[in-house]
Amino acid sequence: MIEVDDKKITWSEHMTVSSLLKNLEDVESCAVVRLNGRLVSSPDFSETKIPDNSRIQLLPLVAGG
């Protein structure tokens, strides 16, 4: 089980940030997530594996300076 923005989601083996987002709604603006406290950006989504029991926060649209 993982936690995404305070919601429990079933974890699966080989789960990546990219595969997770594909199964979520209204995430078109999500370019950055915080995975267990560490920032992960969209170019790395498909290669970033999500360990079981992870905590993920979907960061809002990046607004800049």
């Binding site: 920032l39 992960v40 950006s41 809002p60 300076g65």
Partner: peptide, 22 residues
């Protein structure tokens, strides 16, 4: 606290984000 954590890190969260997006 759930988003950019500016009360903790100010605008420094942008450094890795900008780096990762070239």
């Amino acid at each position: 606290p759930k988003q950019n954590r500016m009360a903790l890190v100010g605008t420094i969260h942008l450094v890795p984000i900008m780096n990762d997006h070239d």
